[in-house]
């Protein structure tokens, strides 16, 4: 489904701020893979995700998605294939537009936009049904401006928007990090359900090791722009937080330093 080959990214090349964020990464995801990604601050998790989404161009290598070489595609063209939920709940929705309007925008992801109505009455009914399933209590507030919603509601709405048109890959970058624990849990459960239900291929960055173990069928650990650990299937199911900390030590040859401490254990 997704094939990343020898991709590197250096920020601010040739300046004092030069920073190799991604170093010759190779990664292949199969259809239906739900990968959780962990690593310390600055490990390059968000950067990988942004490189897939086309937020900034890659320096070298290739990215293939659903058999298409998207290495040189601009962001908007890639998002025909990609669904995304950002860390910042404000980022994924248009605050001054209504809930239904936001959903209708998402409903046209990957489709040609023309001079037909931006939202039809029939479509509104369908969207309402989809929203009902999410149980956010928003189905009767379709015309309310999204700016009036709470962070958690906006994040759940973004999740629905990202999956309304089935994406080839769903990219989640700590999408529950800005929410309070209870809301975070709810959004995470919704995420898991929708990924299973629609059999989506997903890539989820998290700082929570327990979540990383609980969810998905595959786990990747990153450090200094490299993938240092990649585990799947049965082996992943039996993983513990202690194993992960151990793996981190053996892979990096470092004690539990500040970076690792930044990973939340439960």
């Amino acid at each position: 489904m997704l094939k990343i080959t020898k991709v590197s990214k250096t920020f601010n090349l040739g300046t004092v701020n030069e920073k190799k964020a991604i170093d010759q990464i190779n990664l292949t995801l199969d259809e239906g893979d739900f990968v959780t990604v962990i690593g310390g601050n600055g490990a390059g998790k968000s950067t990988v995700l942004n490189l897939i989404a086309g937020v900034y161009p890659i320096d070298c290598g290739t990215i293939e998605l659903a058999g298409e070489n998207i290495s040189l595609y601009p962001e908007y063209k890639r998002s025909r294939l990609i669904g995304r939920v950002f860390q910042d709940p404000m980022m994924g929705t248009a605050a001054d537009m209504g809930i239904a309007e936001n959903l209708a925008m998402a409903n046209r992801r990957g489709k040609k936009r023309g001079l037909r109505w931006g939202i039809t009455q029939h479509e509104k009914e369908t969207l309402k049904k989809r929203l009902e399933k999410f149980d956010l209590g928003l189905e009767n507030r379709l015309d309310a401006k999204v700016g009036l919603l709470s962070g958690g509601q906006r994040q759940a709405l973004t999740l629905l928007m990202a999956t309304l048109q089935k994406p080839k890959i769903l990219l989640l970058d700590e999408h529950t990090a800005a929410l309070d624990p209870k809301t975070a849990k709810k959004v995470l459960t919704l995420t898991d359900e929708i990924i299973k239900e629609e059999n989506l291929t997903a890539f989820m960055v998290t700082h929570n090791m327990k979540d990383a173990i609980t969810y998905g069928n595959r786990l990747i650990m990153m450090n200094e722009g490299k993938i240092i650990f990649d585990i799947k299937g049965e082996e992943k199911k039996n993983l513990t937080v202690k194993d992960l900390l151990q793996k981190f030590e053996t892979a990096t040859g470092e004690e539990l330093n500040d970076d690792a401490v930044l990973l939340v254990k439960d």
Binding site: M97, A104, M105, A106, K111
Partner: peptide, 24 residues
């Protein structure tokens, strides 16, 4: 109110969101 018009409004309101929803 059309699809293109909505895409323009979304662009002005939240450009990153519009890009993520395949709006050029």
């Amino acid at each position: 109110g059309t699809e293109i018009g909505s895409a323009i409004r979304a662009t002005g309101n939240n450009e990153r969101m519009a890009s993520a929803l395949s709006v050029n």
